[in-house]
Design a protein around this nucleic acid. Structure first.
Length: 411
DNA sequence: TCTGGGGTCCTAGGACCC
DNA sequence: TCTGGGGTCCTAGGACCC
């Protein structure tokens, strides 16, 4: 089963407001949840059906959405609230199977492999789950059923909102092949035009195309989407956890362009504080640090380097990040900065290098002590003095008090 | 008042090894 | 009348997902 909350942020926002005395249901007016335009975060994060009917799309700038519908209501996001709802749904789902993969804040895969003694009618079960979520949590979901994750996911997309849809292999031809090819998972805005050039317009066209031509034009991605179009996919429903996490990153669009090195370094440090804290919380060290920038012409550039030995020390990561930033920046005004650490390994045993800072263990102890205090009293309980009166937050990144539930973009 | 932030994976080119 | 062919590792950039 693939379970997807319909217009997650907007639905949760609507339910919360109704519960707190508001009389208007945001789901029944043209409405979007959108970021703050003054701080240059002004994009559509979720939309109501009536907003969708005006042609408004997720990810587009708020000002464009307003042009499409003069009566559009824009409400700001409250991420901690959406995470709470996501957790509440996850808790409910756990009553039905232990095999759940949280795929994103609003999507879950449920496996019932080996549980046929418990359930005899899975369509009935899907309806029970769907109705319980609606009654107990207040928002609607769409559920797709099949014998692999790809088909279940494609199935949940076919009918929305508040629906259960099966998409078994013998239903592919009738239910999936007529759909436009860009509806297929992993066919995005770069792949769709390439497929149109090959006269591929529907998922069925793709499924029946010559595989060797697809491989020639689209490399391994061509083979992947060919298999998906034919419903071939066999990945496991796997619990998300820190062990198979590949990297940790935080990035931010600043409310005004950055034009001086000092401010840039402060933002870098603020991002490293978040990344470092999350890295240590995950029980990992990293061996690769990368810095990315976006200039005011929206050109992205990045620079990365290996660390001399695995590290989870904020100060060490920050020093590497400063160096990378200085090599990367040629003085153009910047609107966006990002820090990413990867090539992770467990921090239980750390290979020591001759070239490590001699106070590495002291630094690690310091970080752990600060983490503990921040955990108990909040992130602002310990702040580097360099941030005081700087106008820059001491920790940047993340979307709320808690971490996002782990998610991934691959099946 | 123009354009977010969290991820994973793939590819191409170059350095370096024997 | 010029410079191979295996391999691995590193780096930068881009595709895709929600």
């Amino acid at each position: 089963m693939h379970i997807d909350i319909n217009s997650c942020f907007l639905s949760v926002e609507a339910v919360y407001r109704l519960q707190h005395g508001e009389t208007i249901d945001l789901r029944e007016i043209p409405c979007v949840v959108g970021g703050n335009e003054d701080s240059r975060h002004g994009i559509v994060l979720a939309k109501s059906q009536l907003a969708k009917a005006s042609g408004i799309q997720t990810g587009e700038p708020i000002f464009k959405a307003k042009q499409k519908n003069k009566d559009l209501v824009v409400v700001p996001p409250r991420y901690p609230l959406y995470i709470e709802s996501s957790n509440a749904m996850f808790q409910l789902l756990q009553e039905y199977t232990p095999h759940i993969q949280r795929f994103s804040i609003d999507e879950n895969f449920l496996s019932f492999e080996g549980m046929n003694n418990h359930y005899d009618d899975y369509i009935k079960l899907a309806h029970i789950i769907k109705d319980r979520i609606k009654n107990e949590l207040g928002f609607t979901v769409s559920i797709g059923l099949s014998n692999n994750k790809l088909l279940a996911k494609m199935g949940s997309d076919i009918k929305k909102p508040d629906a259960v849809t099966t998409l078994f292999p013998d239903q592919i031809k009738e239910k999936m092949w007529p759909l436009p090819v860009e509806d297929l998972f992993m066919v995005g805005r770069a792949t769709a035009p390439k497929l149109r050039n090959l006269n591929i317009f529907t998922i069925g066209d793709l499924a029946n195309h010559d595989l060797s031509i697809l491989k020639l034009k689209l490399k391994s991605h061509g083979e992947l989407i060919y298999r998906y179009a034919n419903g071939i996919e066999n990945s496991e429903v796997r619990k998300s956890n820190y062990i198979n996490m590949k990297g940790i990153g935080n990035s931010t669009t600043t409310s005004r362009d950055i034009t001086d090195r000092k401010t840039a370094h402060l933002v870098v440090l603020s991002l490293v504080e978040s990344v470092g804290t999350r890295l240590r919380a995950s029980g990992n060290c990293c061996r690769l640090v990368s810095v990315s920038v976006r200039d005011n012409n929206f050109i992205n550039r990045s620079r990365q380097c290996k660390t001399s030995s695995p590290t989870d020390v904020t100060k060490t990561i920050a020093n590497i990040a400063y160096k990378l930033f200085d090599e990367l920046w040629n003085g153009e005004p910047l609107r966006h900065l990002g820090i990413h650490v990867s090539d992770l390994c467990t921090n239980e045993m750390c290979q020591v290098s001759f070239f490590d800072e001699k106070d590495k263990e002291k630094q690690r102890a310091l970080d752990q002590a600060i983490d503990k205090v921040r955990n108990k009293y909040g992130n602002k309980a310990v702040v580097r003095s360099i941030f005081l009166h700087s106008g820059i937050r001491s920790m940047t990144g993340g979307i709320g008090e808690d971490d996002y539930p782990l998610m991934t973009s691959i099946l």
